[in-house]
Design a protein around this nucleic acid. Sequence first.
RNA 1: GGCCAGUUGGUGAAGUGGCUUAACACACUGCCCUUUCACGGCAGCAUUCACGAGUUCGAAUCUCGUACUGGUCACCA
Length: 554
Amino acid sequence: MTNKELADLIFPNITKTVEDYEKMYPERNLKEGAKVVRFAPSPTGFMHIGNMMSAVINYTLAKSSEGVFFLRNEDTDQARSVEGAVEFIHHILNYYHISPDEYEFEGKIIGNYGPYIQSERIEIYHAFIKHLIEIGRAYPCFLTSEELEEIREYQAKSKKRIGIYGRYAKYRYTSNDELAKKIKNGEKYVIRFRSEGDFNKKFVFEDLTQGKIEFPENDIDVPIMKSENLLPTYHFAHVVDDHLMRTTHVVRGNEWMSSVPLHYELFKAFGYKMPKYIHTSLILKKDEETGAIRKISKRKDPEALMFYYEDKGYPVLAVIDAVLTIANSNFEEWRTNNPDKPFYEFPFSPKKMSPSGALFDLDKLDNISKNYISKMAAKDLYQEYLDWALKHDEHVANLLKNYKEETIAFLNIERETKKPRKDYENYSSIFPKSWYMYDEEWNKDLTYEFGKVNNKEEIIKIMNEYLNNYYDINDTQEEWFNKIKTLAEEMGYASDMKAYKENPDKYKGNVADFTTVMRVVLTTKSMTPNLYDIMKILGKDRMLKRLEILKDNF
RNA sequence: GGCCAGUUGGUGAAGUGGCUUAACACACUGCCCUUUCACGGCAGCAUUCACGAGUUCGAAUCUCGUACUGGUCACCA
């Protein structure tokens, strides 16, 4: 029996050839240097920070070269597929405004190189496998999982290399007639690639991130089609899809590095040019309990999954900047020099990626985010904050709607200056630092953070005196502060810090202690933005009301 | 165990043979400014680049060895 006959026996209904597909998906007509990249997650889990990094890098590469960024759904492992994972990927890409140019979703195919879902490409893979069988580079293998296990055990025990190669690849030496007989008997099989590599020979491969690497050639007859669902394995799908979709640059995790010899041989078997590879390093994490450095874990580290950043309310662009900072450390410098440019204009350089894994640093994200939020106009911040609250905190959303102008005024305190305040790292951290601006929030158990002056009579006396005889909402900040100093002095507090420091025993306290009293009565907190502005937003009546609340709660 | 890679402060890192008594950013600490906080200013934070040997007038930078860390060795991607 010829190879051709064997191929027809296995794939009787496949009529299209490799050449047919070659014509259906011609070279893309793009300008010189344009990069065709893809984000190709498998929906076996929810999108995590590592995926995000890959997506952002891909997007940047495509945009900056006027290329194409497409999304491919690698769903060949249907047993492990997770409900909602695909939807979440689309959601995240939209949410972060890094949408692909070509994709397939909810029955719609956008782009000429689809289908973009691997399970829908099964006929294409079969045509390519059929071709390999015809030219003698693939064969059905009937090794059972027990036999496989036996081989592995034997190899491990006798310290041989593990895998199906050489004489362990039993069915590569079986005649086509016998193979055909087994197939007709209905025996289960996988299709294996017939490797021609020599483990003792080396080849040099250039990775754009890791540089030149020398590998032994692949000599393992790896499965390219699974027995159960007849779908290809990752390795085979990668070669077929990225060739047909005309991918120029493959961005993928470092865990694929050691498969390069295999992919190299697979591409060669078809006579195709290999795409360029950017193997990105893993995102690591220091385990808080053990102190050990390990791969970031979806289980232990909430920040591993992309839900986290949305729930916490980190600004979209802050997250992207943080991701790019990990990817390319010179991004930060570029960002300081180009504060207003879109992130994808950054000249991303695979070479500058660290070859070893980077620890994901939430402190750094917080810092980037604080800077970012501090530069937003108050009304824009209000809008983003509201949008976040609408989805994540109904109570806060209602307050924001009812106190729109006040909230904007509060958020604007010390904002429109050259060096604005950096209070908030995300939207969820605003409310715990601003709840006291909303009267409704004063109906709960209160903890007043009084400091040095914490005597009830004294506090009430200060407040009464100040609110009734001194406060005027129309005062400038300077007038406001002068009045406070006058009253402080009158009541036995030093208005001049130097005088106080020289002779502290002469006074009940200083003007800082004095304003702290007012601050705490009005906000319960000892640390707030500028008191003058807060008072102006509250107005005299509400301040008096808070004094009454204090009396009941002290 | 085989193969591949990595190892510069608490973190991300710059650095590709002399300009490095190791940049920058984050975090942290102290002081100053100051109505608190924040901002800002100043100062501190690796006498040294995992370790050992070698090449060299000279090494974080090149070579070799050792140790450690990570990846991979599935009909998972």
